[in-house]
Design a protein around this nucleic acid. Structure first.
Lengths: 148, 148
DNA sequence: CCTTCGGTGGGGAATTGTGGGGAAAATTCC
DNA sequence: GGAATTTTCCCCACAATTCCCCACCGAAGG
């Protein structure tokens, strides 16, 4: 299963639209119906899941026990930000206002592919995120994948 | 399984294209479909995995739990640089701009075979890398392979 | 000496990103 | 309840980039 990958910096027009890179569009399965569900990221950015993948996530969430407060909080935290958006004829999506504010997106957006989802960042905030990393990439790779 | 080996220094043209050495092309399996996925190396260079090998790596990544911050950081770190490129009719690949900047590739590139992937270096940076090695080659070999 | 293979360079066509205009729908105000 | 205004959506047009194809040149091999 090919996943999303790559990076691209595009402009956000006055109507809040951004192009989805052609390389990422081509990864979309027919089942996704050219639709993403956007929601807040775990970092200060927007996550976009293709429709088919999002439905799996909803299924996962529905297995949580909603009598547990933490589970309820989690579900609320994701879903209150979630919104379905479809590609227009030019391969763009419109970013919902609440998410624009959350991720503090201005006139430029950095889009990066992350396997099962895409991420939309304010380029400056992404820069800051990289600098805030405690460990460098080599060390990180070794600690995540380096077990034998 | 025959792996990539050898080295070659080629020119990078104004469009960012480099030839893949014929010896390395001949190692490509049909499953790789004449396609490499390039991404950042652990050092200041570009790694290129043949498509079949890359898919295995994606499978490995997809087993990581993306609710764990470190895993997310790692996936982002690899995939934001990753891009699929195919050989053109002349056996060349085009290097994506972000990777050219990352590896600081100018008009010449050194291509090294490294078993399951190829590496593309700025020849000068490779020289510097060799000098920066703390331990000499004999000692290194002993510490990696010398345990009985 | 001729042929084949491997690396280098450039030109044209199709794709992709960007901006804006107008119709339909929703919202607000009177 | 109806009209005016705003918002949303869809479509068209331009410009830049990328991709694909063709041509050349030198080296190696028969």
């Amino acid at each position: 299963m090919a996943g999303f990958k790559g990076q691209a910096e595009y402009s956000v027009d006055s109507k809040g639209r951004v192009a989805v890179p052609a390389k990422m569009r081509s990864v979309l399965k027919p089942e996704a119906k050219s639709t993403f569900t956007l929601t807040r990221g775990f970092e200060k950015c927007i996550f976009g899941y293709p429709q088919d993948r999002w439905e799996e996530m909803e299924d996962d969430m529905s297995t949580l026990n909603t009598y547990v407060t933490k589970s309820r909080d989690f579900i609320r935290g994701i879903l209150m930000w979630a919104e379905e958006v479809s590609l227009d004829g030019q391969g763009r999506i419109g970013l919902p206002k609440p998410l624009i504010e959350f991720a503090d997106i201005k006139d430029r957006a950095l889009i990066i592919g992350a396997l099962d989802h895409i991420e939309i960042w304010n380029p400056e905030h992404f820069e800051a995120y990289l600098k805030s990393q405690e460990v460098d990439y080599q060390t990180l790779a070794e600690s995540v994948m380096g077990r034998e």
